[in-house]
Simulated assay, not measured.
Amino acid sequence: MKKICISLILVLLYSSLCFSEVPKWLVNLEKEFPTKNYISAVGSGNSEYEAKQDALTKLSSYFSVSVESKTNAHNSQTRNNSTYSTNSSIDQDTSIFTNSDLFTIHYTPSYFDKEKKKYSVCAYIGREEASDIINGQIAFLYSLYSHNIMFIEYETDDFRKILIMNDALYNSDRIFKLNEYLRFIDSERALYWDDYISQVNEVKNEMRQLKRNNPVSVFSTGDYSEQIKNIVSEILTENGYVIARNADYKINANTTSIISSQISKSHEIYSTTPSIYISLEDNSETISSCLLSSERISSYTKETLTGMALYALEDLLRNNLTQNLLR
Rank of each mutant, 00 (worst) to 15 (best):
V218A: 05
D223T: 11
E153D: 14
R183T: 13
E226G: 00
T156D: 09
S198A: 15
I133A: 02
I134N: 01
L191R: 11
S220N: 03
I228F: 00
Y170R: 13
L141M: 06
N171D: 15
A168Y: 09
V216C: 03
S198L: 12
S217K: 07
I149L: 13
E202G: 08
I197V: 15
R174Q: 09
I138H: 00
R189W: 00
Y192Q: 12
N213W: 01
E202T: 13
R174H: 07
N148H: 09
V203E: 07
N230G: 05
S220D: 09
K204Y: 06
T221K: 06
N171Q: 04
Y170W: 12
D173N: 12
F219A: 02
K161Q: 14
M207E: 14
E155F: 06
T221R: 06
R208C: 02
L144R: 02
E202C: 04
I231P: 01
F140D: 07
E188I: 15
N166E: 10
K229L: 05
T156R: 02
E234I: 03
Y142C: 10
T156C: 04
F159G: 07
S220M: 03
I231M: 03
E155A: 06
R189A: 07
R160W: 07
T156W: 00
I138Y: 00
L178Q: 09
A139M: 05
